[in-house]
């Protein structure tokens, strides 16, 4: 089965500067984690901060464009992995190894038809 591991963290800890040491450190950890995953990693990416997010909403038959993320929350979707796992237990084991700030969370969701 294929699972998405959605990473939610408080993005303010990484600031908005690409050279922020906290950001560089976590990116390095993700690179090495991705390598460890090998072929079990089907896809994934890190996302730029929500200050760069734009949201398209559908209402009353028309689509409108807004500045900002879909929802204002304390933690934001900051990246995701798509992984191949035998079952939920394996997906959860992988999720536990994803680099994560204290207070962050990984949501594990099976892909439809995955």
């Amino acid at each position: 089965m294929k699972y998405a591991l959605l990473i939610y963290e408080n993005e303010s800890l990484y600031g908005s500067d690409k050279n922020n040491p906290a950001l560089q450190e976590i990116v390095a950890k993700h690179m090495s984690f991705s390598q460890d995953l090998g072929p079990k990693r089907v896809g994934g990416a890190g996302l730029a901060g929500t200050h760069l997010a734009t949201t398209v909403r559908s209402a009353n038959g028309s689509k409108t464009v807004h500045d900002g993320p879909f929802a204002e929350t304390k933690e934001q979707l900051g990246g995701f992995y798509l992984v191949e796992a035998a079952d939920l237990d394996e997906a959860l084991e992988i999720a536990k190894r994803v680099p994560l700030q204290p207070g962050g969370a990984i949501e594990v969701r099976p892909l439809l038809g995955g």
């Binding site: 089965m1 796992a85 035998a86 237990d89 997906a91 084991e93």
Partner: peptide
């Protein structure tokens, strides 16, 4: 649908 395994968990779990 979420793939909860019908297995007895291994030693690590």
């Amino acid at each position: 649908e979420a793939g909860v395994p019908f297995e007895i968990p291994g030693p690590n779990l």
